[in-house]
């Protein structure tokens, strides 16, 4: 300390009271940054808007499923009828999509909203130079942005789902099974991962584009491409590839089907929907086509949790890999960047 006298006065009055509480360690800069980011998000209008939107769709989906729950659980042909809480998340009478379908297109919007101006707004406001002049690692800035937003998203999803379980218990009086709870938590983790992918993509774009509007537009463009156009393009490709004459032999049919699934699974929303469906519907046995030989002798019963997890594992890996690639690219661009306003 250069001049102890300058800070002397306050130390006596404040220092003693704090000694009683024990010496707190100074928190690490990374934690301070993450805390600030999360706080900023919670207070920001755009998060409040997204929160209201997601809460409303959640309530809507829940209302529809609650009004159909007695019919769904009474359906003897459905092997999943005993999982009341999973049914709550997946039942619909066709008027409203189910919650995970909502998330498959609202989740990206949430991720984009939280990330599109992560770096460029700081740069344009001149706070990035100020931040970089502090003794902190550059990658910590990116990571704090990512973690801060992801914490907020996680809390949001967990709250919604736990509220749903609590409300379901009050209404139906059925206790939640441990397996069911784990499946629902798995679904939450999957949703967080899915939003995390879009978040890291948005952060990447915010590093790449100096203008926040440009990066938001680019992110929304990518999102629209995957939600609207991608399916059309895949259909176009498939109709071009498929031979038009006559019925196909089963082997060819199978290979074309696999090609179609492969192309569809390049879209993150498809990965998410696949994984969410498998986790929330224990009777789903495969995400691809099954032959008659495979189906022969299979009893239509719910799979254990471990088997369901095995089925979605490729989807989880794919989303994780995509997230990591985006983050690594952002990191690469940001580390080499010369910071000046």
């Amino acid at each position: 300390m250069e001049s102890p006298l300058v800070y002397f006065k306050g130390l006596f009055s404040k220092g003693i009271t704090h000694k009683g509480l024990g010496q707190q360690k100074a928190e690490s800069p990374f934690r301070a940054m993450t805390r600030k980011e999360a706080g900023d998000h919670v207070r920001s209008w755009r998060f409040i808007v997204m929160l209201i939107l997601i809460a409303l769709t959640f309530l809507g989906a829940l209302y529809v499923s609650l009004s159909n729950i007695s019919a769904a659980t009474a359906n003897i042909n459905d092997p999943d009828r005993l999982f009341v809480y999973l049914k709550l998340l997946t039942t619909s009478d066709g008027t409203l999509p189910t919650f995970h379908v909502f998330i498959s297109f609202l989740g990206p919007l949430l991720g984009i909203a939280l990330g599109f101006d992560a770096i460029n707004s700081e740069q344009n406001n001149g706070t990035l130079t100020r931040l970089m002049a502090q003794p902190i690692y550059r990658d910590n800035v990116l990571l704090a942005k990512f973690c801060g937003a992801l914490i907020v998203v996680s809390v949001l999803f967990l709250c919604l789902v736990l509220l749903m379980i609590g409300g379901g218990m009050m209404i139906t009086g059925v206790l939640v099974e441990p397996g069911e709870l784990l499946r629902i938590l798995g679904f939450v983790a999957m949703s967080i991962l899915y939003v995390g992918f879009w978040l890291s993509l948005a952060i990447l774009l915010s590093v790449r584009f100096r203008n926040a509007a440009t990066s938001a537009l680019a992110a929304i463009g990518i999102w629209l491409f995957f939600t609207v156009f991608y399916r059309i393009i895949v259909n176009l490709i498939m109709s071009a590839v498929l031979p038009s004459s006559g019925p196909l032999p089963p082997e060819d049919l199978l290979s074309y089907n696999n090609l179609l699934l492969f192309l569809l699974r390049l879209a993150p929303s498809q990965l998410y929907t696949d994984a969410a469906t498998t986790l929330l519907m224990p009777s789903v046995r495969s995400l691809g086509p099954l032959t008659m030989e495979q189906m022969a002798g299979a009893i239509p019963s719910p799979l254990p949790l471990k088997e369901s997890l095995m089925i979605v594992w490729p989807q989880v890996t794919g989303l994780l890999a995509a997230t990591t690639v985006c983050f690594a690219l952002a990191y690469y661009l940001f580390m080499r960047r010369e910071i000046r306003t």
Binding site: L11, G15, H18, Q23, A26, S28, P29, A32, Q134
Partner: peptide, 9 residues
Amino acid sequence: RLNRIEEHE
């Protein structure tokens, strides 16, 4: 905080 100054100080 980014400079690890202790909270009470």
